[in-house]
Design a protein around this nucleic acid. Structure first.
Lengths: 224, 224
DNA sequence: CAACCATCTTGACGGCGCTCAAATAGGTAT
DNA sequence: ATACCTATTTGAGCGCCGTCAAGATGGTTG
């Protein structure tokens, strides 16, 4: 991640137009859109989601308060862009865990641990993704990474079952897994659980033990 | 619904100060603390959580913008009070479901359905409770109802297991159940699931089917 | 009655999201 | 180079927000 906002052009500070300031930054920001998203992520990690105001992001990126509006329709659009990056990252994490594991119970737990650990390591970002996904749920064009997570869930659980199983059962298992992942991602953040995790041998052991409480067994058709 | 004055205009010359409970201390305009919380809940249902500004709540209650500060330390304290009411209500709902069911698998599903249905019926309030509980997690004096929910979870799951099972296992099962409840409360709100629920025979059937994916079986000690 | 004091209002401050006209820089055609 | 064009950035301004200090209001009490 090149979160370096130094000027990449060796502009001559004396000859170039410097009406705005002597910081050497070219008047035309190279890629303000990108810089804003990165400033937002930086701010999110450093100060938490409460500090994620448009003005603060603009300040962090070193531009005026109105500048973002030429790259994002409104505040929500900027937050959406940040959340989208998070979704891409989470999706990658899950996919890696998926591919590094073999089908079945082991894989479900591995993907779940990856999911929850991502949330624990990026709590503010996760919560932003969470909120944003909810707000844009009804939008017809939720983008690639957002849609991929449920798909990955389905194949994670689908592959762990005999092929003869109905799609309904597969979907239900995926829903249960997804719910468990999301719920655990929240519950595991409670500070009161810390000693409990210690007793179990660490956070990862805790996550695996809880996720192990998902029912992986075959089941009779729910109907018929 | 145009701008209608709230019917609780404080000028009620006949009974300005009388007719208030012996416990309350309604000096000027009645019990403003109570009125503010109710105004907040009203606003939450009518306009959603985005409209829950301190000024809006004060307006809804018919007082000046600064009046709430004599009853709540800041905006967060007011939101906390509203969320607390929600926690009391949720706790009651769960307790009722608990007592109306018999121990074991049936009970776990009944309590889970009660939990998730509360969230689905009061989405804005649930989300507020959710956020607030998280923010105040580290406070030493989280109040009665907030603490009772985990306790109820523990006994819901604890009673479903043989007594010889270790506390650890009981707690883990409760954590898994709690995670599932919370996650499902979020996931079940996605509009895209509507047809899926229909195929299953309605929302309740969907909830029961997903919750049924919790592992209720006995397990070996997680550590050995 | 008058003094008191809890209660609420007024008015102000700074920060916010958002909009808009005006200014400026970089690239391109002349 | 010159002049233009377009994208980018700015500064001012609107209305709303949370918050605070000081003043007004009115019930309670000596």
């Amino acid at each position: 991640m090149t979160d370096e906002e130094t000027p990449q052009d060796p502009v001559d500070p004396a000859s170039t137009k410097a009406a705005k300031g002597a910081d050497g930054r070219p008047y035309h920001h190279g890629d303000l859109q990108r810089a804003l998203v990165e400033a937002g992520r930086r701010l999110l990690e450093r100060e938490g989601s409460a500090a994620l105001s448009l003005r603060a992001v603009a300040r962090e990126a070193g531009v005026s308060a109105a500048a973002p509006y030429h790259h994002f329709k409104d505040r929500a659009a900027l937050l959406y862009a940040i959340a989208h990056e998070g979704n891409v990252a989470l999706n990658e994490t899950m996919k890696t865990a998926f591919e590094a594991s073999s089908p079945g119970r082991e894989r479900i737990i591995a993907v779940g641990v990856a999911y929850v650990e991502f949330a624990l390591q990026n709590p503010a970002l996760y919560r932003l993704m969470f909120e944003t996904t909810r707000l844009y749920d009804h939008y017809p064009d939720t983008s690639e990474a957002e849609g991929e997570i449920p798909r990955l869930m389905a194949s994670t659980f689908g592959a762990s079952m005999p092929a003869r199983k109905s799609d309904m059962d597969r979907h239900l298992a995926a829903m249960a897994g997804w719910s468990m992942f999301r719920g655990l991602a929240e519950v595991a953040q409670f500070r009161t659980l810390k000693p409990f995790k210690g007793l179990l041998g660490g956070e990862r052991a805790f996550l695996e033990a809880v996720l192990g409480r998902l029912d992986f067994s075959d089941r009779p058709e729910p109907e018929s």
